[in-house]
Computed example of a mutant assay.
Amino acid sequence: MSVQDTIRETVTNNPVVLYMKGTPSFPQCGFSATVAQILKLSGVTEYASVNVLADDDIRQGIKEYANWPTIPQLYIKGEFVGGCDIVKEMYQAGELQTLLKDAGVTAA
């Protein structure tokens, strides 16, 4: 299985996936910490997280998968949502909460 297949399987088999540096409980960069915190504030209690620091192939592959050069990357229902700035803007506008509710991953 190729790295792209692995990524595709992860984002399609999990309602919410965060590719990040570190883990939700121990983020390794401020941007990853911010997105993890926004998910928590949005009522997302469970989601798949992938620590890109643990696998260089995934770290490079995820940038190619979404054609997005930076990490973190958030996926909801298999769709690329964005990185830290986009997620933050969507959260502040209430759009992220709506997207999460529509995806059935939060009650709020």
Results as ranks from 00 to 15, higher is better:
M1Y: 00
V3L: 14
V3K: 10
V3D: 03
D5L: 05
I7L: 02
R8M: 02
R8W: 12
T12Q: 08
N13T: 15
P15Y: 03
P15I: 01
G22D: 09
P24F: 02
P24V: 02
S25T: 04
S25Q: 07
F31V: 01
S32V: 05
A33N: 14
Q37F: 06
I38V: 04
I38G: 10
L39G: 01
G43I: 07
E46N: 05
Y47C: 04
N51C: 09
V52E: 06
D55M: 09
D56N: 04
D56V: 01
I58S: 01
I58Y: 00
E64D: 09
A66F: 02
I71K: 15
I71C: 09
Q73S: 04
Q73E: 11
Y75W: 03
Y75C: 14
K77E: 15
E79I: 01
V81F: 14
G82H: 06
G83S: 00
C84F: 00
D85M: 05
V87F: 01
V87W: 11
E89M: 01
Y91L: 00
Y91G: 01
A93Q: 12
G94A: 08
K101C: 03
K101G: 07
A103W: 03
A103T: 14
A103I: 00
G104N: 01
V105I: 10
T106H: 10
